[in-house]
């Protein structure tokens, strides 16, 4: 059990980051343990970024992009989806529960959905123990 899981989120500038902004302007309330990093497109999310965040002590990583077909750059979100599937396999190999990594599509008008997503993901992570990745890495390095 982990009462305050740390979430690092990568949000694409055009849909998801705007959706998260909308959650703000509409004064939605959601769990405060999420830290958002802005990128231009979900296609920019390198697996390295996700692994780096785990290494630095994140309990969960959230990636959000535009809905399929709505990508500002036409197809960056599809590239992201492909990498996500590969990354999931890698996480399994590394012994990291794949529940810790989540990919969701959030459009610019989905402030409510974003708030709900953060709360749900937080609940999922609360059910897991705190991530040991940082400690493990420190021990072996």
């Amino acid at each position: 059990m982990n009462q305050s899981p740390k979430i690092v989120a990568f949000l694409c500038n055009w849909c998801s980051y705007t959706g998260a902004d909308l959650a703000g302007t509409s004064r939605m309330k959601y769990a405060s343990n999420i830290r958002i990093i802005r990128i231009m497109c979900s296609g920019r999310v390198e697996p390295t970024f996700v692994l780096k965040a785990f290494k630095e002590g994140a309990d969960g990583i959230l990636i959000c992009g535009c809905h399929p077909g709505d990508c500002h750059y036409h197809e960056g979100n599809y590239k992201c989806l492909r990498r996500f599937h590969l990354l999931q396999k890698y996480l399994v190999q590394m012994g990291i529960p794949i529940e810790r990594l989540k990919l969701e599509w959030i459009s610019a008008s989905e402030g409510v959905e974003f708030a709900k997503l953060v709360n749900e993901f937080t609940e999922t992570l609360k059910g897991l123990d705190p991530s040991q990745i940082k400690k493990t890495v420190e021990t072996f390095s």
Binding site: I37, I39, M40, C41, G43, R44, F49, G76, K79
Partner: peptide, 24 residues
């Protein structure tokens, strides 16, 4: 968009203002 930067296997592509170094 930076998709090429994520796909580059050697790190030869730099996405200006969203470089690996900046995001990491």
């Amino acid at each position: 968009c930076g998709t090429c930067g994520s796909a580059c296997p050697t790190g030869a592509i730099k996405c200006k203002h969203f470089t690996d170094l900046q995001i990491l």
